[in-house]
Design a protein around this nucleic acid. Structure first.
Lengths: 327, 327
DNA sequence: CACCCCGAGGCAATGGGTTGCCACATTGTT
DNA sequence: AACAATGTGGCAACCCATTGCCTCGGGGTG
């Protein structure tokens, strides 16, 4: 069933298994021609080391698990891709796990995988702080799009990004921004609201909040109605999906974007570019977030537990047609 | 570093390791109170079996690898999700691998993972037939969106789907369809073209082909120009990304969709619903494709090599605003 | 009371690769 | 010429869970 083992190679090459093992892992430890003979035999037999057997003794699995809270959100694609790319450079396997927006599923999967991976990258984890700390006690952990003191994290600089959003809207004459908030247990939602409010205060305009909303297109209707009812001239939605839903509902109610209402999203997903009108949104190099997170994880061993880095990556406000002068 | 082992549990519960093992896997084999004691101790210690050690002896890894040719294509999301859901039901781990559109990368990753997984699900594999057969000789394989005699596969019924597309266009008065083809080595592209041509012949209209094109938005421009030059009234693009690119370019050149040209895509990705005009596209239950593929893989052991099923799932033509009466 | 059967638990081999330690041979040192 | 240093390869324990086989003791049968 399975391929040849190190024993088969050893027999065929007339050496001990230990010699075969060293021929691969410690090239200097065996003589040149012995090594050559072993490699030739191994190639001929199609030998490939069994990762399980290796992991059993060394405790190193050469595998990192990435847990995403909802794999259907297009925003994660770039994160996944970046993580995958970085993992492959080091010949690590990336195990992708979908938490289906459920903290329970997320927790169970992490517990199940814990003995089999070298660490976890958690994207927008929905777990409460205590659980994150428990995980971190077992295995190295890097958070994406979330922060927690004592844990390594990679996030886009939303403080600066929200300042850009507010400055943009203010320069268009808006005196008020309405944030359509994300889920209650989302760290991101809290962070964005705080940053928007601070930025608004700084430039002297008002900031209000509505929600929470599940950040999906389908929730955009309710969010849009709330925004209209609140008399908003500019809304900032928790993410692009929600923003697109908002725009759909506004169009349905006969309101024009951006003439009547300006709309801003977060993430710069592909659909933000093709929807109509094009969505102004706060993007960033999400591939680099994924890359940086795995990078931190792979170098986690050399850092002290109380020296966990917080990596902040720059955002980029992508201007499209959904924002315009205040009516 | 790592968690407690079965030895720790055995010591703490004053029994042999074999008894602990059996307490978990063969409940009837140990007495009720011994079992209870062991489970209590294990829970207290936070014991979880090491999957590697288990896999080493049994040869079963409880892991399937899913290889996608390009993870940035939104079309794969549902496939991934379906595969993930089905795998989790059986407590299998889904290993997601991105081939980056490179047959070489795809091949290397498969070879590397082969000793560590129970089988492969290959989504729109770019590997040549011979390589697929080699993989299948090592491990159970299920293809998605591709067929090869002798290998299990799950695909949407494109023959019927293309008939629906052609019937739809013909009923709008179109006497000609132009297929904007996908990559040269894509099985899907060949299949769609053959099905379109057959369907066109059946209803008595003409079918032409242009391409190949890399199925990305950026390639839509060239495809659109070619279509205009060919005087097409109805184009069928290899997938939604290409179709969206085509529509962007048509708009840029002042041509109206669908008044001047009707456009049809494949896959029904999220963006097809939000772009403007909405894209008529051939969708289907992609989640079920993913689900069925893993299902086949998990039951692969019980089938003879010459009895590999071809699963055909229904398509659904989603009508939106991008198709209309022939000018 | 002798014998058998059955339930319950332990011993030890197993899987595939890694690594500390030892053995042997060759070459160099005094 | 006797001995040390260095280079190569082998032996065997180890990682952790599983499982075939054995043992021991209690209850039932004749």
């Amino acid at each position: 069933m399975s391929g040849p083992t190190i024993y088969d190679v050893a027999t065929a090459a007339q050496v001990a298994t230990s010699t075969v093992s060293r021929a691969f892992s410690q090239p200097g430890r065996v003589s040149a021609d012995t090594r050559e003979r072993i490699l030739a035999v191994a190639a001929e037999l199609g030998y490939r080391p069994n990762p399980h057997a290796r992991a059993l003794l060394s405790g190193k699995h050469h595998t990192v698990a990435m847990v995403v809270s909802d794999i259907t959100n297009p925003h994660y694609f770039d994160l996944i891709r970046g993580a995958e790319l970085r993992a492959r450079v080091s010949e690590y396997t990336l195990l992708l796990v979908n938490a289906e927006e459920s903290p329970r599923v997320e927790w169970e999967q992490i517990q199940r995988l814990s003995p089999a991976v070298d660490g976890f990258v958690l994207a927008a984890s929905r777990l409460p702080d205590e659980n994150l700390q428990q995980v971190a006690a077992q295995r190295p952990v890097v958070l994406m799009s979330r922060e927690l003191p004592g844990l390594a994290s990679v996030v886009l600089d939303h403080v600066e990004g929200c300042r850009q959003i507010v400055a943009h809207l203010a320069s268009l004459g808006h005196r008020d921004v309405l944030y359509l908030s994300g889920p209650r247990n989302s760290w991101m939602a809290a962070t964005r609201w705080a940053a928007l409010r601070a930025a608004a205060e700084q430039v002297g305009i008002s900031a209000r909040r509505l929600g929470p909303f599940t950040p999906k297109v389908s929730q955009g209707g309710a969010a849009a109605d709330g925004a209209v009812n609140a008399g908003a001239t500019a809304v900032v939605a928790h993410n692009d999906l929600l923003a697109i839903g908002v725009m759909q509902r506004l169009a349905q109610r006969g309101l024009r974007v951006p003439e009547d209402v300006s709309v801003v999203g977060f993430d710069d997903i592909f659909a933000a570019d093709v929807c109509s009108p094009g969505l102004t949104t706060l993007g960033g190099a999400h591939v680099d977030v994924g890359r940086a997170a795995v990078e931190l994880l792979l170098t986690a061993g050399v850092r002290a537990p109380d020296d966990q880095p917080r990596v902040l990556l720059p955002t980029e406000l992508v201007l499209r047609a959904s924002t315009g002068p205040c009516r």
